[in-house]
Design a protein around this nucleic acid. Structure first.
Lengths: 204, 204
DNA sequence: ATGGCTATGTATAAATA
DNA sequence: TTATTTATACATAGCCA
């Protein structure tokens, strides 16, 4: 598209590669923008130069939004293949996909005719397994954090309960001392007084 | 670029919009591929049609890889602005190894003479990063589980403490009833008896 | 690195099959 | 729908500031 035709292969001359990069990059972005406007679709273009510089076009405001749509799209596609036998009502339903995945992996590893496994298939399988792994990790962390929340709640209730009981004992002791001048100290010889008790619970 | 000039705005006629979409989309993909080959850079193009169909081009095998690079790029940029006041000696010390790894990764990506990165080097780097990730996950899980253990321990202590306090109250009440035939029921009118109290704590 | 400047190769709008 | 054709608009290679 210029003074002469260029073969599509890596431009070895450093500066003209850089010049071409600059021009064609902006051309690509322009085309992407036109496509998104003319056809009313969302388009994103990501370019990473060899020196780590990054260029982007996105028809929506945030590229992360586009990327979320991408990941959701992939998830949805994965689900389609798992939807066939997904009639179980139990809490393990979400792990059926993983079960299937593991079976697939095992089968592929044990299959004698390994040659008919295309690289594309394996990349796809890898992505599926990775997604399942991520979901499992997420679930694990969620359960652990929920457990901690529950325990903290219990702790709070127990501490309140404890305080009430202590107060009650104090009340009883005071009432006894004030209303009937009797020596009842040996009834509960192992108990500390209320102040000491509070201090002893501070480490919790 | 055709029989006549087109204004860049949404094509209202449905079928010609569809036709244009098909043609320009493939054109965009072609340009992206040419750019990636001619200039030796990574390019990704994502297109979402209005009816939810999805089209992509990626110069690398996996688009997810490109997206990971994107998110890492963003993260790295975020860190640069946050690195200013990061003179703390504290709890972040254990992440230095990981920090170093990330720097290595970034440096390798930004290095102008990319050609001297052998596949072996990259495999090694991948393994290092993966190890760091595994260690981080392990540490996270460990801390969460330790936290749960501590909370369980506290819970146990609190329950014992509670039981002791209840027993004491029972003892006081019994002693009062047995040793001095006085009616002291109205001293602690809100308390349940010991059996009921135990039941009330069962849900913990 | 950009920003013109042509000459020329490509992409593509419209029509047609 | 999708493919082919053809005329035209656009993008851009090589060159110069």
């Amino acid at each position: 598209m210029g003074r002469r035709k260029v073969e599509i292969k890596r431009i070895e001359d450093n500066s003209s590669r850089q010049a071409t990069f600059s021009k064609r990059r902006s051309g690509l972005m322009k085309k992407a923008k036109q496509l998104s406007i003319l056809c009313d679709v969302d388009v994103a273009v990501l370019v990473f130069s060899s020196r780590g510089r990054f260029f982007e076009f996105s028809s929506t405001n945030s590229l992360t939004g586009v990327i979320h749509r991408y990941t959701n799209h992939m998830k949805a596609e994965d689900k389609v293949s798992a939807e066939v036998d997904d009639t179980e009502e139990s809490k393990y339903a979400s792990f059926m996909t993983m079960e299937e995945l593991l079976q697939t992996v095992e089968k592929q590893l044990k299959e004698p005719d390994v040659d008919d496994l295309s690289i594309t298939d394996l990349v796809h399988l890898e992505n599926q397994v990775e997604t399942a792994l991520t979901q499992t990790r997420f679930r694990k962390t969620h359960l652990l954090i929920e457990s901690i929340k529950n325990l903290r709640e219990k702790e709070k209730l127990l501490i309140e309960e404890n305080k009430l009981l202590e107060d009650e004992i104090c009340t009883i002791n005071n009432t006894e001392e004030n209303e009937m001048t009797m020596n009842l100290n040996n009834i509960a010889p192992t108990r500390m007084d209320c102040g000491q008790q509070k201090e002893a619970l501070n480490f919790l």
